[in-house]
């Protein structure tokens, strides 16, 4: 029997993988994918809680997160494309015009 804790631990692991990805990867698109992983682990947490608490609020929250994540991806990819047109790279280490 898979219990609530199993889902929560899986979600926490996924979230940690996402955070690690954001912090260690250098390609803007891969960073973006890692952020999506973080958001989806949150979704898993919400759905697990909602299921085991017999409450709908969490399920509805997930729909909003998915919608917002989709909007964020649309804008994010557009920004990455406009950067690629100007700089021919999407490596975040090259984004260094502005410094201290």
């Amino acid at each position: 029997m898979i219990g609530l804790n199993d889902y929560l631990i899986l979600a926490a692991i996924l979230f940690a993988i996402g955070v690690t990805g954001v912090l260690t990867r250098r390609n803007a698109i891969v960073i973006f994918m890692s952020i999506e992983l973080m958001l989806n682990s949150v979704n898993l947490t919400f759905v697990a809680f909602a299921h085991f608490m017999n409450s709908l609020d969490g399920q509805i929250f997930v729909f909003f997160i998915m919608t917002v994540a989709a909007a964020e991806v649309a804008v994010g990819l557009a920004i990455i494309i406009s950067i690629f047109r100007n700089k021919k790279t999407v490596n975040v280490d090259d984004m260094n015009i502005m410094k201290w």
């Binding site: 947490t45 964020e72 950067i83 975040v92 984004m95």
Partner: peptide, 23 residues
């Protein structure tokens, strides 16, 4: 471009934490 990308990546990253907290 650079400002937008930095804001976007860090903003979305922080949204992840915000949402995990809410969850």
């Amino acid at each position: 471009n650079e400002a937008a990308l930095k804001y976007l990546l860090l903003g979305a990253f922080s949204t992840g934490f915000l949402l995990y907290g809410i969850a």
